Amino acid sequence: MQRRTFLFAVSAVAFSGSLWQEAAMASAGTSPYGPLLPPDANGVALPAGFTSRVVARSGRAVGGILWHPAPDGGACFPDGSGWIYVSNSEIPLAGGVSALKFRADGSIDRAYRILNGTNLNCAGGATPWNTWLSCEEIFRGRVYETDPYGSRSAQPRNAMGRFKHEAAACDPDHRVVYLTEDEEDGCFYRFVPGTWGDLSSGRLDVLCAGPMWKKVPDPGPAVFEKQTRHQVSDALHFDGGEGCYYAGGVCYFTAKGDHKVWAYDAAGNVLGTAYEGGGTLDGIDNITGSRAGDLYVAEDGGNMEINIITPDRVVAPIMRLDGQGSSEITGPAFSPDGSRLYFSSQRGTSGERAGTGGITYEVTGPFRR
């Protein structure tokens, strides 16, 4: 990850006034891929040289199963000469996770379920040991560690806290997992496992003023007890925590109510921003990145774009879905070789909250990598 510009933005919180604004604000500019062309046959507007295809639709057969409703957070995993894309289902009671297995030529080999019977599985995060952390966005929700390859049963990781989970990002450098919380006064957490690679036990910390980390006294409070975000008096609060992505010593996380892409420099213990609302990026939600150092941020509503934020702080759309303004873009993730970007429109053209119109896409092209 190229860190110099983003870390300059992060360090800018030490200043004030116009200097801080100049340093911290990414600005609209020209995409490194050029302007968006008119929408293709799939309704996807892309730069020249890029193509799209629909790989799955909610309620329709794909790879031997019916693709789940309300597709949300996702990630890709290597699988021999092919790869696997996993996708959460953000519906009550029957949420869970499905997986699409791709062959080396990009064709779909099969699809299968890796988690069942859970609630409103929203976002999550991949681990360095190739498991998928699927997060429940409900009161006292859990994190479930799942196996993308379908060999092992999913396990709840209660030590990671019982709250309205959104996303997770593993930091192998400091051996912690960062967690976001989708509440109007949500917190930013880190889970410190007793043994790296084993998430069954450990300590849950919350980011506080300073910034500094403090232990959450009771990560799994009962219904009528003080919830995690209210247990530490000087905890920092973020309005609607969403996506979370770690690279190059920095954890980037989004907050839809703050209209910001926050950036936590783990090595320097500094909190700042990589983007603040007001530009081309609206409805800030899921986030991922590429090996070239670019961030890709999906919109919940807005004009249904995925925007790139380059290391020199240029923000520009690289994809737009037309006619789907009542939906949201979810689950952006690159294939292991960086040549394909997967994402979903959770409610598609129907806009139904049940997510029966969900569409999962693949975009192929000359991505920077």
Rank of each mutant, 00 (worst) to 15 (best):
residue 14 A to I: 07
residue 130 N to R: 13
residue 280 T to E: 11
residue 172 P to R: 02
residue 237 H to G: 00
residue 122 C to K: 08
residue 288 T to F: 10
residue 230 H to N: 15
residue 305 E to Q: 15
residue 352 E to K: 11
residue 153 S to H: 04
residue 139 F to D: 10
residue 356 T to L: 08
residue 108 I to P: 04
residue 305 E to K: 15
residue 313 R to F: 10
residue 358 G to T: 08
residue 70 A to F: 11
residue 211 P to I: 09
residue 228 T to Q: 13
residue 87 S to D: 03
residue 254 T to K: 00
residue 27 S to E: 06
residue 139 F to Y: 06
residue 225 E to V: 02
residue 291 R to T: 12
residue 269 N to I: 00
residue 25 M to R: 12
residue 211 P to D: 10
residue 96 G to Q: 01
residue 250 V to Y: 07
residue 303 N to Q: 08
residue 90 E to Q: 14
residue 137 E to D: 15
residue 65 I to V: 15
residue 333 A to Y: 08
residue 294 D to M: 06
residue 295 L to W: 02
residue 92 P to M: 12
residue 237 H to V: 12
residue 131 T to C: 06
residue 266 A to E: 10
residue 9 A to K: 15
residue 39 P to I: 00
residue 220 G to N: 13
residue 325 G to N: 13
residue 97 V to W: 01
residue 259 H to F: 05
residue 228 T to R: 12
residue 224 F to A: 12
residue 308 I to C: 05
residue 201 S to Y: 07
residue 148 P to D: 04
residue 202 G to L: 08
residue 63 G to S: 09
residue 29 G to C: 10
residue 254 T to P: 00
residue 231 Q to W: 06
residue 20 W to Q: 14
residue 218 D to T: 10
residue 328 E to I: 07
residue 87 S to F: 02
residue 103 R to V: 03
residue 163 F to Y: 15
residue 313 R to T: 06
residue 123 A to K: 01
residue 148 P to K: 06
residue 95 G to W: 03
residue 221 P to N: 04
residue 328 E to Y: 01
residue 262 W to E: 00
residue 25 M to K: 02
residue 261 V to K: 09
residue 19 L to M: 04
residue 37 L to E: 07
residue 236 L to R: 10
residue 223 V to G: 00
residue 8 F to K: 15
residue 270 V to W: 03
residue 155 Q to H: 10
residue 43 G to F: 08
residue 71 P to Y: 04
residue 283 G to L: 02
residue 155 Q to F: 00
residue 290 S to C: 03
residue 314 V to W: 12
residue 262 W to Y: 14
